[in-house]
Amino acid sequence: MSHAEVWVIAAAAVFGIGLYSLLIASHLLRQLIAIKVMGSAIFLVLVVAAGPIDGALDGLPKALVLTGIVIAISAIAFALALLVRLAEVTGSTSLEDEADDDR
């Protein structure tokens, strides 16, 4: 297997782990961490996908990864603020045991 395929399979594995824990976890904080893990798996794929093009190193994927990281950070920060507010207001830190909120 070429150099790149090894990394892609590893990234796929990490992505799977993150997805599994996102769906299973009941505590919101664990779910947010799972999302962060899946994000890093994707950045891994992006970096590996770069691969040299006609000799010169291709800088575009690096730029994409940087932007991706910035967006992931801001999204998670916003989610955490929301989580804190939710815990204060409703006292529960999980989406599973909520009463039906639209009655």
């Binding site: 997805l19 996102l22 769906l23 989406l95 039906d100």
Partner: peptide, 12 residues
Amino acid sequence: EALQRRLPVAGL
């Protein structure tokens, strides 16, 4: 409908 709202079900 209420079932579909929960995350694991949506993920599946």
